[in-house]
Design a protein around this nucleic acid. Structure first.
Lengths: 120, 120
DNA sequence: AGCCGTTATATTTTGTAAAATACAACCCGT
DNA sequence: ACGGGTTGTATTTTACAAAATATAACGGCT
């Protein structure tokens, strides 16, 4: 693109990747961050607030992941000393780790291709 | 994800990539196909029809690409023997070729990562 | 001069995803 | 018993992208 663009340095390859199931999306960057925030805050509602997302949307995303996975990624509890809460299951932690790796390789791919665009 | 999912073979990594400029998107898979259809049909309106897209939307996309590139990717003509038409400039043909290469490498990346998901 | 099919452009309508709102259920602690 | 903060769920409202509609301009042809 070097000679196609007025300022090639201002252009870069961007993108998104996600794990797609037969019916629904299973895991993408937004769901990943949601899982991380649940891990960090111990609740869906605080994770949603931290991301500027409505609780309903966050809950729907958790529900989608939990029902698609063989075993839930997020364990929830209603009521209790602090009203309830949520935390990652081992499966959830594994999903986070694996998808973070995918994301890292994808970022590398994008950086590579951005270099190539600027070069050729 | 092998042990996270009930039927790992049904899940795969999907995604999108695009060339992003400082203000607008410059080129993605939709714009690429639009350019290819313009090349094939000789007009924006026929290209739009071939893609099930409104003429306005197609024209807006062409306008966005033409104004961002150093030199237009699509040359248009109003009036004339068949009412007018559009065709790819050399710059447009080069953009198509380069972005098709990016897409090919991205498809390879996705296939790789899908294999990895199924495997580990 | 008038027709045709296109480009070019503005405005209105529609469809849909997200947000907002509301409220029941839960259960530990006081 | 009830207060608090959460999960769980339905419904309404809002925001925005896309589609639909409308219309002018263009220029070769008959």
């Amino acid at each position: 693109m070097k000679d196609l663009l007025p300022a090639p340095a201002d252009y870069r390859l961007e993108g998104r990747v996600w794990v797609q199931g037969p019916h629904d999306r299973f895991l993408g960057i937004g769901r990943l961050e949601l899982l991380v925030q649940i891990q960090a805050t111990g609740s869906i509602s605080r994770a949603a607030a931290a991301m500027g997302m409505s609780y309903k949307r966050a809950w729907d995303l958790v529900h989608s992941m939990n029902t698609q996975a063989r075993t839930p990624l997020v364990a929830t509890q209603t009521g209790g000393k602090s009203g309830g809460g949520a935390l990652l299951t081992p499966a959830g932690a594994q999903a986070v780790a694996e998808f973070q790796d995918v994301q890292a390789r994808f970022r590398a791919f994008l950086a590579d291709e951005t270099q190539r665009l600027a070069g050729q």
